Computed example of a mutant assay.
Amino acid sequence: MLSSDLLSCGIDRWYPDLRRLTIRSVLVPLPSDFAAYLVADGVVLPGGDDEAGASPAGEEADDESADGSATLALPASFEAVRRAIDDGIERLGGAVFVKLNWSAPRDAAWVLGGSLKCTSSEDVLLLLQSSDRAAHDLTEARRMCEDAAAAGEGGAGVDAAGEPHGFVLALRKWCELQPSREFRCFRGAGGRLLAACQRDRFSHFPELGARRSHDLGLLEAFGRELPSAPARVVWDAYVDRNDKVHLVDLAPFHESTDPLLFEWEELVALDDAAASPPQLRLVAEGHIAPSASIYNGWPQELQQLGQQDLESLIQTAQKAAKSADS
Rank of each mutant, 00 (worst) to 15 (best):
L267Y: 03
R143F: 11
V81S: 03
V168H: 15
S32P: 00
E79A: 15
A321W: 06
A57Y: 09
W174A: 11
A76K: 14
D33L: 11
D49N: 02
A84H: 04
A108E: 03
S120A: 12
L21N: 00
D215K: 00
A321G: 00
A104F: 07
E60L: 15
L260T: 14
S312M: 01
S120C: 10
A231G: 04
G188Q: 05
S69Y: 09
A76M: 09
L45C: 05
A141F: 15
Q315T: 06
E51L: 08
A275G: 01
R19G: 00
G93F: 07
R187T: 10
L247N: 05
A134S: 15
A284P: 00
V245P: 09
A189I: 06
A160W: 09
R212F: 01
E263N: 04
G152Y: 11
Q318S: 09
K99M: 03
L169A: 07
R133I: 04
D17V: 10
C9E: 04
Q304V: 01
A84M: 02
E176D: 15
A320M: 08
A229G: 00
E225D: 08
W264A: 05
G152D: 11
V245M: 06
A320T: 06
D33Q: 12
R172D: 01
S103F: 10
S203R: 15
S103K: 14
S103P: 00
A61L: 07
I11E: 06
R199A: 14
S276Y: 03
S25N: 05
W174E: 04
L112H: 12
Y238R: 09
W110I: 02
G191L: 05
A80N: 12
Y15Q: 05
S32W: 02
E90F: 08
F78R: 11
A275V: 12
R199V: 01
G47Y: 11
S276T: 13
Q300S: 11
G88S: 04
R184N: 05
P29W: 04
L270N: 05
A221K: 14
A221Q: 13
L169V: 09
L282Q: 08
A150H: 09
A251M: 11
L250G: 00
Q300W: 05
D62N: 09
A221G: 08
R24N: 07
G48E: 14
A151D: 14
L310E: 01
I294G: 03
Q307S: 05
D123S: 06
A135P: 02
D86T: 10
V268S: 01
A109N: 13
A273I: 02
G191I: 09
A324M: 07
I314S: 03
G286D: 07
H287G: 00
M144Q: 15
D159P: 12
W264D: 04
S65D: 15
G94H: 04
A273K: 05
G223K: 04
P278H: 02
F253K: 02
G209Y: 00
E122G: 06
P179C: 03
V168F: 13
V124F: 03
V43I: 15
S77L: 10
H136D: 13
A321I: 11
L138I: 13
R212A: 10
C185Y: 01
I85F: 02
E225H: 11
P56G: 10
V44W: 04
S203A: 13
V96S: 06
L169T: 08
R184P: 06
S115R: 13
E51C: 07
A104W: 03
D87H: 11
